[in-house]
Write a protein that binds this DNA or RNA. Sequence first.
DNA 1: TATTGTTATACTCTATAACTATA
DNA 2: TATAGTTATAGAGTATAACAATA
Lengths: 158, 158
Amino acid sequence: MDTVREASGNPPGAAFLLAAIGAHATARFAERIAALELSPPQTGLMRVVVATPGRSQQELSELLGTPPSRLVGLVDGLAAKGLLERRRNETDRRLYALHPTAAGIAMIEKIGLVGREHDDAVCAALDDGERAVLRGLLVRIAAEQGLTPGVHPSYRRI
Amino acid sequence: MDTVREASGNPPGAAFLLAAIGAHATARFAERIAALELSPPQTGLMRVVVATPGRSQQELSELLGTPPSRLVGLVDGLAAKGLLERRRNETDRRLYALHPTAAGIAMIEKIGLVGREHDDAVCAALDDGERAVLRGLLVRIAAEQGLTPGVHPSYRRI
DNA sequence: TATTGTTATACTCTATAACTATA
DNA sequence: TATAGTTATAGAGTATAACAATA
């Protein structure tokens, strides 16, 4: 079948390829972690809570760049699964501190495993050296574009 | 401020970087193209119609991998702007053939310009040689992952 | 009876703003 | 009066399935 690119004679630029492959990678990752009964935003939040435990929802809201109201549902879901818990701050009882449970820490291990499998599948076309080159270029783009390392920008409002 | 990556000691893999930068690129492109009063899905459809004019909505639905019902709204919007038109097939009056108007072809030129500006902005961290290397790696990933060249996978249902 | 395009409906995800409880 | 967290509401975007017109 002839394709759009061939018909238009307009080879896509790097930015279009990044958008297309990024959306593809996002969809494939969502499929994989659905096996752990987690959504991608829940997964990102779990990572942050494990990386920096004890933060309030306000602090996480600030770090992720997402409205506090969005965090409520994510935390509710993860707490209902027993992966993290809200601990009242005794000196200021308006605040919660979020901490991973033992099950949450175990889950992070599984998430890491799924992530590595996913990474390997997405980069199947490249050998190890090429993957390193790609990562190097992507890290530089991410830094120049002002992306927070380790935080997916879909948390951010425009 | 310390970041999640630093705190977790878990450098993101290439797939996460692709997802994050891809989402960022998508959002930035949507901002740019909004100046032309188009949405990203409308833009993708315009590209396809200009590249291969005269197709029916069924054929485009098949090519893009999207339900026919979704195409209706996109075509409606583009037709209302006078960028493309539905022409009845006289031998089988169930079918429409989609054709760009003169205004639509002029719009494609603007879209191309916006796309090149966007590409340049996203890749600002890289010099020309590095951009070529990046494109080469991305094209190979896209091909191996089964992505249709020139078609954004967000049209595709899971 | 099958197919093209359309409409009706519902679902997911998210943001905004109003609300409560604490300070 | 201000702040942390929650709830209520609404909007965008999409898919599924029912539908009308044509074959």
